[in-house]
Design a protein around this nucleic acid. Structure first.
Length: 471
RNA sequence: GCCCCCAUCGUCUAGUGGCCCAGGACGCCGGGUUCUCAACCCGGUAACAGGGGUUCGACUCCCCUUGGGGGUACCA
């Protein structure tokens, strides 16, 4: 009810408060160009102190401002920050923080294009929108004394909102967890690949060869879609940073909320894995942590495993479907019933991507053989011979249920005095091309008798000398 | 450079002067279970950054050092 919420639509509101400050001599016009300010900063640096804008003894008048504007000089408005006493910030997580007089210098509240700066707009907005708590990252702590001084000048009778400055989540490579990490990883990867086709790569990223070159040299960064496309083309996996990255990697929304909540906060007991309602109930501003935290992806995966286990089946199915859409997976063809079944037999999966990976073979026609798996399971030892026997047994079955398939395979293994693995693995590689799949009995049953036999035959033909070797 | 914040196992953290030769979780290591990958079960490893104070007693309070992070824009 306090809108409009677009800054461009709130210009009159901000202007009103700027005029008020100007009239009260708590703000003043400035006509410095960018070059002027650069020079001032350089000067200040030479004197080893920090830069502080020097307030003029007498403030320019409205007429001065109009004249400057007419002459084409930039006109900005600065807030005259109270300099007679320290600025004290009361922070919910950090307590009392004192900034010495002079530490916060007069900052711009209205830009030369007439727009308010963030530090001004947020104060006006917080007041008008009746904000009670300002909860943000530590990077804003140094803005706070200025903002609060502004609040007191503008709304002396109104109580300040509560301020809570949270710790920052840092990356294992040092510094804030930042979007810039993705391009950086890609750039380093490209440098490691001497014979990459740069022309093709630029085309994939939808940028020019020059732009790609500048990117590799570290002079510029293309937009994210381009970065993503190039990474995919090169087979480089980028660290997840944006929330969509985590979605694409198969993490549940519940996992992200839970994990992120525990970075810089804890409930005070040993609880970690919590469903959303419990999390909300347990949350308390007073338990925010002061020190920075590092984003540990291994622990994230563990959290996701737990959340996949505790999410109700129907809900998990919806999450899976969302994931499959994002991943553009062939498994998307599966109906609700099949998806539910896949979730069930993939029990213990760590991410939705795990489920997808294991289920793929059911929804694709061509089997992609993993060379290592074929070599180890089929070519070395009696894999092919056993597979031929299994084929015969499967072909002879009239009831094709998981139970019957299990009984058959176990009996066969016993007869041949082999571990079940010796019998199951060749079959697994034959139907899905690698050694990773749901339990073999379910896998075979879901594939169906006809298709299973077809794939076994194709495998025997592809890798067997005559396809009729015997044990 | 200057200003601000922070400092317990590898990581996230519990701990607010005696309950702590420091608890939990993830990881890691070892073992068990097992048709693959996971999951699961059992066990283990591992920390109060350093130095000064204060106190009968410091992980806990104070100071310094060191280290990490943030800010230093007519960006948000």
């Amino acid at each position: 009810p306090n809108g409009p919420y677009l800054q461009s639509q709130r210009r009159e509101i901000y202007d009103k408060y700027v005029r008020q400050l100007l009239a009260e001599k708590r703000a003043y016009y400035c006509f410095d160009t960018a070059e002027d300010l650069d020079a001032l900063r350089e000067e200040a640096e030479a004197e080893t102190g920090g830069f502080a804008y020097r307030r003029p003894d007498t403030f320019p008048t409205q007429a001065d401002a109009e004249k400057a504007r007419a002459e084409g000089r930039p006109v900005t408005v600065r807030f005259a920050v109270p300099q007679d006493e320290p600025l004290v910030v009361q922070d919910v997580v950090r307590g009392v923080i004192t900034f010495a007089p002079g530490e916060i210098s007069d900052f711009i509240i209205q830009k030369s294009d007439g727009f308010p700066t963030y530090n001004f707009a947020c104060v006006v907005d917080d007041y008008l929108m009746k904000i009670t708590h300002v909860i943000r990252g530590q990077e804003h702590l140094n803005n706070t004394p200025g903002q609060q001084a502004l609040w007191r000048a503008l709304f002396p009778d109104a109580e300040l909102p509560k301020y809570a400055h949270m710790s920052v989540t840092v990356s294992d490579t040092g510094g804030k967890l930042s979007k810039r990490e993705r391009p950086k990883v890609l750039r380093d990867a490209i440098k490691q690949m001497p014979d990459v086709d740069l022309e093709k790569l630029a085309a994939v990223g939808d940028i020019t060869a020059d732009e790609l070159n500048a990117f590799i040299k570290g002079q510029s960064v293309p937009d994210m879609p381009g970065i993503d496309a190039m990474a995919e083309y090169l087979g480089v996996s980028l660290p997840e940073i944006n929330i969509v990255d985590f979605r694409k990697s198969g993490y549940l929304p519940e996992t992200m909320v839970n994990f992120l909540a525990l970075l810089g906060w804890n409930p005070g007991d040993n609880r970690e894995i919590m469903p959303l309602p419990e999390l909300i109930d347990a949350f308390d501003l007073a338990r925010l942590t002061k020190s920075n935290s590092l984003f540990d992806r291994k622990k994230l995966v563990a959290f996701n495993t737990e959340h996949i286990k505790m999410t109700p089946p129907e809900r998990l199915r919806e999450h899976l479907r969302d994931y499959l859409k994002v991943a553009d997976s062939p498994v998307l063809k599966a109906d609700d019933e099949l998806l539910a079944r896949l979730i069930k037999i993939c029990e213990g999966a760590r991410t939705l991507a795990d489920i997808e990976r294991k289920s793929r073979f059911l929804l694709t026609d061509a089997v992609e053989y993993d060379a290592k798996a074929v070599d180890k399971v089929l070519l070395k030892g009696d894999g092919l011979a056993i597979l031929a026997i299994v084929r015969g047994k499967l072909a002879a079955m009239d009831q094709f249920s998981e139970e019957k398939i299990e009984t058959m395979l176990r009996t066969l293994a016993e007869e041949k005095q082999l571990g079940l693995g010796k019998v199951a693995q060749p079959l697994r590689v034959a139907i899905c091309g690698n050694t990773i799949s749901p339990p073999i009995f379910d896998s075979v049953q879901l594939l169906g008798k006809e298709e299973t036999l077809r794939r076994i035959d194709a495998t025997l033909k592809e890798f067997g000398r005559d396809g009729k070797q015997h044990l």
